[in-house]
Design a protein around this nucleic acid. Structure first.
Lengths: 108, 108
DNA sequence: ACAGAATGTAAGTGATAACTTACGGTAAGT
DNA sequence: ACTTACCGTAAGTTATCACTTACATTCTGT
């Protein structure tokens, strides 16, 4: 998929986000990632599959191992959505606070 | 809570994100929000509670109605995390691609 | 005071997701 | 060729989540 929805769903789970951040520090194998987390290796493998389907990570072969590394492109849709929403939210919030102040001052 | 984890979990659900974006366009009541979505009004109420606990929206009384509006502060932790991770990811990705090119060129 | 509107909450249900163990497949070393 | 290491996937279980209907509460207007 690799759209914003799949990226958000993938990053929502704390364990999976820990996997993502671990891979973000430096490219690592599945066993290395699982070694630093309180879950089994297959669990990490499944998390990596979700992250890969979301376009957040990619992998390459290294002998019998598989090295995973982050793909910044996967974060781009999320960044764009957040930036756009951020601007609108700031404006709307300013208008809302102004409205509340008017209500306070204008009451009988 | 109002940390990054709760914000991500709250925004992961498509319906709840639709509620969030609807409120983001302009402050609205619960009934107005539910009118534009294919779910019941109590469902919207529950989604708003999650968004409120995550610090993403706030509400004010308006007679018998409740007007909900976005709070940009709720998005701030998520923005900071994403910006920081974005920079690291770009560097790491550049190193990774460089390494892959070296492997290609350096093979016997 | 009463009727109606708007909302929050409780209870129950179906689906989904995260995790485990068990198994199959591929690559490296002896 | 055989063993070992590393990984992905299937099957099953448990918990959580999103949704619905039913009910309680608060506010407004008559």
């Amino acid at each position: 998929m690799a759209n914003m929805n799949s990226a958000l769903m993938a990053l929502a789970d704390p364990t999976r986000r820990a996997v993502f951040e671990c891979v973000g520090q430096s490219p690592r194998s599945v066993g290395e990632i699982a070694g630093g987390l309180p879950v089994s290796r297959p669990a990490v493998s499944q998390h990596l599959k979700v992250l890969k389907d979301a376009g957040l990570v990619r992998d390459r072969a290294d002998g019998a191992r598989r090295i995973y590394f982050v793909d910044p492109k996967g974060l781009e849709p999320l960044r764009e959505w957040l930036d756009r929403f951020w601007g609108d939210a700031l404006e709307a919030y300013a208008r809302e606070i102004e409205k509340q102040n008017q209500e306070k001052g204008g009451r009988s």
